[in-house]
Protein backbone atom coordinates (compact mmCIF):
# COMPACT_ATOMS: atom_id res chain seq x y z
CA UNK A 1 0.00 0.00 0.00
CA UNK A 2 1.41 3.40 -0.93
CA UNK A 3 -1.45 5.35 0.61
CA UNK A 4 -0.56 5.73 4.30
CA UNK A 5 -2.96 4.70 7.03
CA UNK A 6 -3.67 8.30 8.12
CA UNK A 7 -4.53 9.31 4.56
CA UNK A 8 -6.77 6.29 4.27
CA UNK A 9 -8.69 7.43 7.36
CA UNK A 10 -9.02 10.93 5.91
CA UNK A 11 -10.35 9.42 2.67
CA UNK A 12 -12.93 7.36 4.55
CA UNK A 13 -14.01 10.49 6.40
CA UNK A 14 -14.35 12.33 3.07
CA UNK A 15 -16.47 9.48 1.66
CA UNK A 16 -18.77 9.88 4.64
CA UNK A 17 -19.44 13.51 3.75
CA UNK A 18 -21.14 12.77 0.42
CA UNK A 19 -24.34 10.92 -0.44
CA UNK A 20 -22.48 9.28 -3.35
CA UNK A 21 -19.11 7.77 -2.30
CA UNK A 22 -17.65 8.51 -5.73
CA UNK A 23 -18.03 12.20 -5.11
CA UNK A 24 -15.18 11.94 -2.60
CA UNK A 25 -12.70 10.84 -5.27
CA UNK A 26 -11.54 14.39 -5.96
CA UNK A 27 -10.99 15.18 -2.24
CA UNK A 28 -9.24 11.82 -1.95
CA UNK A 29 -6.80 12.80 -4.70
CA UNK A 30 -6.01 15.99 -2.79
CA UNK A 31 -5.45 14.01 0.42
CA UNK A 32 -3.07 11.61 -1.33
CA UNK A 33 -1.15 14.41 -3.01
CA UNK A 34 -0.81 16.32 0.26
CA UNK A 35 0.52 13.18 1.91
CA UNK A 36 2.82 11.89 -0.84
CA UNK A 37 3.61 15.06 -2.78
CA UNK A 38 1.99 13.55 -5.85
CA UNK A 39 -0.45 10.82 -6.83
CA UNK A 40 1.67 7.97 -8.15
CA UNK A 41 -0.04 5.45 -10.44
CA UNK A 42 0.09 2.84 -7.69
CA UNK A 43 -1.88 5.19 -5.43
CA UNK A 44 -4.36 5.76 -8.28
CA UNK A 45 -4.80 2.00 -8.51
CA UNK A 46 -5.43 1.81 -4.77
CA UNK A 47 -7.96 4.64 -4.98
CA UNK A 48 -9.75 2.77 -7.78
CA UNK A 49 -10.06 -0.23 -5.47
CA UNK A 50 -11.29 1.93 -2.58
CA UNK A 51 -13.93 3.62 -4.76
CA UNK A 52 -14.77 0.47 -6.74
CA UNK A 53 -14.17 2.17 -10.08
CA UNK A 54 -11.89 1.18 -12.96
CA UNK A 55 -8.35 2.55 -12.53
CA UNK A 56 -8.73 4.54 -15.75
CA UNK A 57 -11.54 6.55 -14.14
CA UNK A 58 -9.09 7.77 -11.50
CA UNK A 59 -6.63 8.56 -14.27
CA UNK A 60 -9.31 10.59 -16.08
CA UNK A 61 -9.78 12.82 -13.04
CA UNK A 62 -6.08 12.95 -12.24
CA UNK A 63 -5.11 14.00 -15.76
CA UNK A 64 -8.01 16.44 -16.19
CA UNK A 65 -6.75 18.76 -13.44
CA UNK A 66 -3.20 19.94 -14.03
CA UNK A 67 -2.68 20.65 -10.33
CA UNK A 68 -2.41 16.91 -9.74
CA UNK A 69 0.92 15.28 -10.42
CA UNK A 70 1.89 11.65 -10.88
CA UNK A 71 5.64 12.33 -10.49
CA UNK A 72 7.02 13.60 -7.18
CA UNK A 73 9.13 16.52 -8.55
CA UNK A 74 11.34 18.74 -6.35
CA UNK A 75 11.02 19.64 -2.66
CA UNK A 76 9.35 22.92 -3.60
CA UNK A 77 7.05 23.71 -6.48
CA UNK A 78 7.37 27.18 -7.92
CA UNK A 79 4.68 28.13 -10.40
CA UNK A 80 4.58 31.42 -12.26
CA UNK A 81 1.17 32.56 -13.45
CA UNK A 82 1.31 33.24 -17.19
CA UNK A 83 -2.30 34.18 -17.86
CA UNK A 84 -3.13 37.48 -19.53
CA UNK A 85 -2.94 40.08 -16.68
CA UNK A 86 0.32 38.60 -15.33
CA UNK A 87 1.74 38.35 -18.85
CA UNK A 88 0.90 42.02 -19.48
CA UNK A 89 2.89 42.83 -16.34
CA UNK A 90 5.95 40.82 -17.41
CA UNK A 91 5.22 37.28 -16.21
CA UNK A 92 6.74 35.64 -19.24
CA UNK A 93 10.00 37.53 -18.85
CA UNK A 94 9.89 36.61 -15.15
CA UNK A 95 9.53 32.94 -15.97
CA UNK A 96 12.33 33.09 -18.60
CA UNK A 97 14.54 34.83 -16.03
CA UNK A 98 13.87 32.16 -13.39
CA UNK A 99 14.55 29.43 -15.93
CA UNK A 100 17.96 31.01 -16.58
CA UNK A 101 18.59 31.53 -12.87
CA UNK A 102 17.82 27.88 -11.97
CA UNK A 103 19.20 26.36 -15.15
CA UNK A 104 16.02 24.40 -15.89
CA UNK A 105 13.11 24.85 -18.28
CA UNK A 106 9.55 25.23 -17.03
CA UNK A 107 8.28 21.78 -16.09
CA UNK A 108 11.72 20.58 -14.98
CA UNK A 109 13.30 20.01 -11.57
CA UNK A 110 16.69 21.39 -10.49
CA UNK A 111 19.45 18.83 -10.32
CA UNK A 112 19.68 19.13 -6.51
CA UNK A 113 15.99 18.21 -6.26
CA UNK A 114 15.20 21.53 -4.58
CA UNK A 115 12.75 23.19 -6.98
CA UNK A 116 10.34 22.13 -9.72
CA UNK A 117 9.61 25.20 -11.83
CA UNK A 118 6.41 25.54 -13.78
CA UNK A 119 3.88 27.92 -15.16
CA UNK A 120 0.39 28.23 -13.86
CA UNK A 121 -3.04 29.25 -15.05
CA UNK A 122 -4.82 32.17 -13.31
CA UNK A 123 -4.75 31.99 -9.51
CA UNK A 124 -7.06 34.98 -9.04
CA UNK A 125 -4.36 37.42 -7.94
CA UNK A 126 -4.47 39.57 -11.07
CA UNK A 127 -4.53 42.84 -9.12
CA UNK A 128 -1.01 42.13 -7.86
CA UNK A 129 0.42 40.74 -11.10
CA UNK A 130 2.86 39.31 -11.79
CA UNK A 131 2.71 36.61 -9.18
CA UNK A 132 3.99 33.16 -8.45
CA UNK A 133 3.11 30.43 -6.06
CA UNK A 134 5.63 28.58 -3.91
CA UNK A 135 3.98 25.36 -2.69
CA UNK A 136 0.79 26.72 -1.06
CA UNK A 137 1.79 30.39 -0.75
CA UNK A 138 1.24 33.33 -3.09
CA UNK A 139 3.98 35.91 -3.74
CA UNK A 140 2.75 38.97 -5.58
CA UNK A 141 3.81 42.13 -7.35
CA UNK A 142 7.22 40.70 -8.17
CA UNK A 143 10.15 41.69 -10.27
CA UNK A 144 12.84 39.23 -11.30
CA UNK A 145 15.25 40.19 -8.49
CA UNK A 146 12.53 39.72 -5.78
CA UNK A 147 11.69 36.36 -7.24
CA UNK A 148 15.31 35.17 -7.42
CA UNK A 149 15.78 36.13 -3.75
CA UNK A 150 12.64 34.17 -2.80
CA UNK A 151 13.88 31.09 -4.62
CA UNK A 152 17.40 31.36 -3.24
CA UNK A 153 15.92 31.32 0.26
CA UNK A 154 14.27 27.93 -0.27
CA UNK A 155 15.79 24.93 1.50
Amino acid sequence: MVIPEAARDAIDAAIGRYPEPRAALLPALHIVQRELGCVPLEAARELAAIFAVAPVEVLELLSFYNLFRVEPGGRHRVNVCTNLPCSLRGARALLRGLEAHLGVAAGETTRDGRITLGHEECLGACAWAPMLRIDGDYHENLDLEDAKRLLDGLE
Partner: peptide
Protein backbone atom coordinates in the same frame (compact mmCIF):
# COMPACT_ATOMS: atom_id res chain seq x y z
CA UNK B 1 -18.56 -3.71 -17.34
CA UNK B 2 -14.83 -4.06 -17.90
CA UNK B 3 -14.12 -0.31 -17.93
CA UNK B 4 -10.75 -0.43 -19.68
CA UNK B 5 -11.09 2.87 -21.54
CA UNK B 6 -11.22 6.47 -20.41
CA UNK B 7 -10.41 9.96 -21.60
CA UNK B 8 -7.16 11.33 -20.26
CA UNK B 9 -6.21 15.01 -20.13
CA UNK B 10 -8.48 17.90 -20.99
Amino acid sequence: GTGELGIANR
